[in-house]
Write a protein that binds this DNA or RNA. Structure first.
Lengths: 230, 230
DNA sequence: ACCTGAACACCGTTCAAGT
DNA sequence: ACCTGAACACCGTTCAAGT
């Protein structure tokens, strides 16, 4: 009788959050190609089929995972500060979050994020903009422009990072491996070759600077179109 | 002897371009989930394994397909017109192309497009910008900002389109199907709900207008940072 | 050189059957 | 109600074997 295992406190071993959390862990560790229902199930010491009791399928699981990580975005306090700083802070925080979870950016290309965390973030910024005198249309355009800039920048950056982190370990390694192709590129496309062969010791900082520049351009333009009410 | 089939003019039945073209056709018709090696092979009346003689694998095939459609982008003539119009035209043409081939945008999130067509386009714009007095860094930032805005906008737009074109056929249908969720959203997130429940009879035009606004903001900002040399 | 056919290891998803 | 186990139909990729 000492061998008789104690019955689990609950019959239920699984939960939706447990599944989503496991999925996020797998995605962070091995990226989109590493995610499979069987893999997530194994992570939870469970059978693949049982996941379908809590989740509709792989696509829904990916959407849930994407919204879970959107919860990591820092939102400025409700009615605090000026709109420009609020928008910039949200954008930078969202960019940082997507760079931490690169797979999330590619989920967005299949389904718009309409989970609670995404809606909350969008609602918060729209409220801020409305309070600053933006018309509904302009507020909409502003939110769209900034978040599109974020996702576009993250997609380009992670795609490039995947090249460098693939077979090659560093930028210099890649430049050596692809030397043949780069030579051909240099000959035919001199301007773009300058970008590729540049030493660029701190690529991360450079792309952050480029992002900040684009963001500033957008914010300047929005302020100009807002008129001089604020 | 009349039954003896004429020998084919060439032994070779396949070619890389034939494979890529078939892949693009499948992708356009059925999207990324519809693409499989076996499907492309069937399209060419051939066995799946034979594709590997011409192509390294599915990932490479996707990259080749993406670069093939980037060839559809209209590039402004080499040294013609002002930089602003050239950049805007390229961006709009690229946006239109990605909306025609939505799967291409999601390919970019895995691998940066370094195919010949993409390099040619990038080189052309960089040359135009250099000719207009842009420093290499600013030209780089300009190209990055604009093309990131394009991909971000297209990703958001096609993702949204997938929602509406999924089970529901039109925006009104979707609004009816998701009425329960929308009611909950309206209560909790009033600002964002206004976006979702709006009638918006011409969504395509609206998102094009938003894109043009963002593009104009970026171009204005770049001109300001260029100084008054041009 | 180029393509077939079959195999391998893996998928997502379903569903009876158990508890 | 919740989970297992097995099955189904499909993958990408490899590779001997044919021609």
């Amino acid at each position: 009788m000492w061998l008789r295992p104690e019955r689990p406190a609950r019959d239920r071993q699984l939960s939706r959050v447990a599944i989503v959390t496991a999925a996020v862990a797998v995605l962070d560790a091995e990226g989109t190609p590493g995610l499979s229902m069987r893999r997530v199930a194994a992570e939870l010491a469970v059978t693949a089929g049982s996941l379908y009791w809590y989740v509709d399928g792989k696509d829904e699981l990916l959407e849930l995972a994407a919204d879970q990580v959107t919860g990591e975005v820092d939102l400025p306090a409700a009615g605090s500060g000026d709109w420009r700083q609020a928008l910039a802070q949200t954008a930078r925080s969202q960019r940082a979050m997507l760079l931490r979870h690169p797979w999330a950016a590619s989920v967005l290309s299949r389904v718009p994020n309409m989970g609670p965390n995404a809606l909350r973030a969008a609602d918060r910024t729209l409220a801020t903009l409305a309070g600053a005198g933006f018309s509904p249309d302009l507020a909409d355009a502003a939110l769209t422009a900034v978040s599109n800039q974020v996702t576009g920048a993250v997609i380009a950056e992670t795609a490039w990072r995947a090249v460098v982190t693939g077979p090659a370990a560093t930028l210099a390694d890649w430049q050596r491996d692809a030397a043949g192709y780069l030579a051909q590129v240099t000959e035919r496309y001199p301007h773009v070759a300058a970008r590729l062969t540049a030493p660029a010791p701190d690529m991360e900082a450079a792309s952050e600077a480029r992002f900040d520049l684009a963001l500033d351009c957008l914010l300047d333009g929005l302020r100009a179109r807002l008129g001089n009410r604020s």
